[in-house]
Simulated assay, not measured.
Amino acid sequence: MSSSLPILLLNGPNLNMLGTRQPEVYGADTLDDVVRLVERTAAEVGLGVRALQTNHEGEMIDAIHSARGEISGIVINPGGWTHTSVALADALVIPEVPIIEVHISNVHAREEFRHHSYISPLAAGVIAGCGIAGYDFAVRRLATLV
């Protein structure tokens, strides 16, 4: 399978601190490790990658708006915005592409507020609790959808 349009890898707030922030929850892998994993997996399935991590919600929304017509799908770990951002959910429908939601930890085994996602109803798939391997699974699933 090959698409001429890349996938968009989005990572939300605090994910730039992977490897140092709560390694007992998120593991020792860094955001660079995540991006390399996604790029490697995407190359295996014939996809390119555009990656963005931001701690600024408006920047992520702008990136999603700009991606319309330029991407084939989205892999997103919205971080804390998962549970709070209607604005992000509204933006994610704009590109009209499949979305896979990823969480490194099992959000359903954590605090009650983490059990709700504004993104999940928009997603073709949700992967949680698999560590950064969840990103690999997400890219492979997305490749079957694009």
Rank of each mutant, 00 (worst) to 15 (best):
A28G: 03
D33P: 07
T20P: 00
R36L: 14
D33E: 11
T54Q: 07
D32E: 15
R50M: 06
A42P: 03
I61K: 02
D29Y: 14
G58P: 11
V34T: 14
L15N: 05
L37V: 00
L18V: 04
I61H: 04
L15Y: 03
R68V: 13
E44Y: 04
A51S: 14
D29E: 15
Q53H: 14
V45L: 00
I61Y: 03
M60V: 13
T20V: 15
N16R: 02
V45A: 04
Q53Y: 12
D33H: 12
E57Q: 04
A42H: 02
V45P: 01
V34N: 13
G27E: 11
A42Q: 02
A67Y: 01
R36T: 14
E44F: 07
P23Y: 07
G69W: 13
E59R: 15
L18F: 08
V45K: 03
L47K: 00
A63Y: 05
N14P: 10
H56N: 12
L52K: 08
G27S: 05
L31C: 08
D32T: 14
V25H: 07
L52G: 02
M17C: 06
L18W: 09
A51I: 03
Y26P: 11
T54A: 10
E57W: 02
P23T: 07
G19K: 09
D62C: 03
A67Q: 07
L18R: 06
T41G: 01
E57D: 08
S66V: 05
R36A: 15
L15R: 11
L15T: 01
L47C: 01
A42G: 01
N16H: 02
G19W: 06
D32K: 14
T20C: 05
A67G: 09
N55P: 04
R21N: 10
Q22P: 06
G27H: 04
M17I: 00
L37A: 13
G48Q: 01
V38N: 03
E44A: 09
L18T: 09
A51D: 09
L18G: 00
A28Q: 15
A28N: 15
V34K: 10
T54Y: 12
R40K: 15
D33Y: 06
A42E: 01
H56F: 12
A43R: 11
A51Y: 03
G27I: 03
Q22G: 06
L31D: 08
R68C: 07
Q53C: 08
L15S: 02
G19D: 02
V38T: 12
E24Y: 10
Q53A: 07
G69N: 08
G48V: 06
G27R: 12
I61A: 07
G48T: 08
A28S: 15
I61S: 01
